[in-house]
């Protein structure tokens, strides 16, 4: 699976997304939640980039900022050579066809007042891709492609199970024949048995249509299964980026190590022998993050330097990037 090519499809440079939080009655001082604070990474054509991290670390915000559901506070999002971050909605429209998104909650991501046919047909209507009989055929084709029947086109979303609904969501994303799909925790709301079904389908579709994925999740084993490269986020910062094999065999950032040790292994012998690294304390408030390295409050290797200087994301060889002062030696 590890295709190595330098054909970059998406490049995110120093991306920042701050949400203002008003304090006081008259709007006096404005504080910001730094949901995404200066992250840089790239995604190659045809690969799957996994983005992991605990709740509230800014993974979803990153995805939504890339697709411009949120305005970019600062930084650049370069998709196939074009800077999306500063574009107006009208300029974005051609890119709306090329970047798509699959959402987390299959119950909330489909409009309950529209038939499945209309839901899948909506992107076709918006981009004027086809009308009449041809539109119908495309819809039927998409339904079959995600393993549903033609007859489902006239049904309403509430008649489907979670897995079927998620497949409808995928069919909608595929309707515009995109190059790049952001999967925002597409499987975390599904049963484990259905998760595999959906993930396998995503992999098949990638092979068939040459798709590139940004796969956001918190389920590490699933991310390892699907991703070529993985980025680990902590509190709005990128902690580590590596190929998925390297990340699992040789995690360098203390946070990644802690995350990996939390993966349950279905073997009692191994589990008993294993030393789990338990992180102390809670995630600090993103309103008021710690100075220097953001992980230092929970890091067992924290040094004096960690509180003063913020570690930069550095290449330690072979595209493995880590942001930690331990690597400086």
């Amino acid at each position: 699976m590890n295709k190595v090519n330098n054909n970059v499809l998406l490049e995110v440079k120093n991306l920042k997304k701050y949400f203002p939080v008003r304090k006081g009655f008259f709007g006096g001082e404005t504080q910001y939640v730094k949901a995404v604070d200066d992250i840089t990474f790239h995604i190659n054509k045809g690969e799957t980039f996994g983005l992991v991290g605990e709740s509230g670390c800014g993974k979803s915000t990153t995805g939504r900022t890339i697709i411009r559901l949120y305005d970019v506070t600062d930084g650049e999002v370069i998709f196939d050579g074009a800077e999306l971050g500063k574009m107006r909605e009208s300029e974005l429209k051609p890119f709306r066809k090329r970047i798509q998104m699959i959402f987390q909650d299959p119950y909330a991501s489909l409009n309950t007042r529209m038939t499945v046919g209309d839901i899948i047909g909506e992107p076709i209507d918006i981009h004027n891709l086809a009308t009449g009989k041809k539109r119908q055929e495309i819809i039927y084709d998409l339904l079959e492609r995600v393993g549903l029947n033609k007859e489902h086109a006239n049904r309403y979303p509430h008649e489907f199970s979670g897995g079927q609904r998620q497949r409808i969501g995928i069919a909608r994303a595929l309707a515009v024949e995109p190059d790049f799909i952001i999967c925002d925790e597409p499987i975390s709301a599904l049963d484990v048995s259905i998760q595999a079904q959906v993930v396998n389908m995503l992999e098949d579709l990638q092979k068939e249509m040459g798709l590139t994925y940004l796969f956001i999740a918190h389920d590490l084993s699933m991310v390892k299964h699907i991703s070529d490269r993985i980025g680990v986020m902590y509190l709005g910062k990128m902690a580590e980026i590596a190929t998925s094999d390297e990340l699992y065999t040789k995690p360098l950032h203390p946070y990644t190590q802690a995350l990996l040790s939390a993966i349950p292994i279905p073997d009692p012998e191994v589990t008993r022998a294993k030393q789990r690294e338990v992180l102390e304390g809670d995630v600090p408030s993103p309103l008021n993050p710690p100075s220097g390295c953001r992980f230092r409050t929970r890091c067992k290797y924290a040094m004096a330097k960690c509180a003063e200087v913020e570690p930069k994301l550095k290449d330690v060889g072979g595209g493995h990037m880590v942001a930690c002062h331990l690597m400086d030696k």
């Binding site: 939504r64 559901l69 709306r96 970047i99 998104m101 991501s109 992107p123």
Partner: peptide, 20 residues
Amino acid sequence: QEYVLAAKTLGASTWRILIR
């Protein structure tokens, strides 16, 4: 709601999102 976000990512206009 996510279906509104989905419509936005599809490039639906404000009017369309409101009416549909």
